[in-house]
Amino acid sequence: MAAVEGIYQIRTKKLIILSLQHLVDFDKKNCSCRGGSLNRVFDFIQKNRIIFEAVYPYMTKEGEFAVKENSPLLFIDGYTKVPENEDSLLKAVANQPVSAAINSICLPFRSYNRVYQIIS
């Protein structure tokens, strides 16, 4: 959502906050609060549009709440997957917000249990 909000601000000079609750409640293919896919989030916004946070606030639980008719909705034209290399990522972040995902299913990530802070 932050990437969509960011590109909207870059293009329009207006800062908005989009409704995470709308995504949680209506994007049934994306596992709701239990993880999900960036592609599916962008596909949902592209196909269905997304409502503003002020109209559909976050409620910390799942459930479809009433959406007023004529509520402002935002859509995106599309998105592009950045190739998995440093040069492509550097070019992408130089021009617009970028979303990143972590594959938390892989064994090294699941067995990670320590966080270290470097003190200089």
Rank of each mutant, 00 (worst) to 15 (best):
S104T: 14
R34E: 11
V82N: 06
P57W: 00
K68W: 00
S111L: 15
Y79E: 03
E69G: 13
A66L: 13
N39M: 10
L38R: 01
E53N: 11
T60L: 12
V41N: 11
F52K: 01
K81C: 13
A54C: 09
L90S: 06
S71D: 04
G35M: 01
Q46P: 09
N95L: 15
D77Q: 03
P97Q: 07
F52R: 01
Q46E: 14
E86M: 11
G63I: 05
V55N: 10
V82M: 07
C33K: 02
P108V: 06
F26I: 08
D27W: 04
I45M: 10
A92D: 11
K28T: 15
N70Q: 07
N48M: 13
P97W: 01
F75G: 15
P97A: 13
I76P: 02
R110K: 14
D77C: 11
R114L: 13
K47A: 14
S99I: 06
T80P: 03
L73Y: 01
E64V: 14
N30H: 06
S104A: 15
C33W: 00
E62A: 13
G78F: 02
D77P: 03
I105N: 11
N39W: 02
R114E: 13
R49W: 03
P57A: 08
V41F: 04
V98A: 13
V67H: 02
I102G: 07
V41D: 07
G78M: 07
F75I: 05
I76Q: 00
D87F: 08
D27H: 06
V67K: 02
A92V: 12
K91W: 02
F75D: 04
A100L: 14
C31P: 02
P108E: 04
K61V: 06
P108F: 07
V24E: 06
R34F: 11
Y112F: 14
R49A: 15
S111F: 11
D25V: 12
I76D: 00
A101F: 03
R110C: 14
V98C: 14
K61Q: 12
F109I: 15
D27N: 15
A66R: 04
K68Q: 09
S88L: 07
C106W: 02
K61M: 08
S88V: 05
K61G: 09
G35Y: 00
G63F: 02
P97T: 08
Y79Q: 01
C33S: 09
T80C: 10
A101M: 10
N85P: 09
V93E: 05
K91Y: 06
I50A: 08
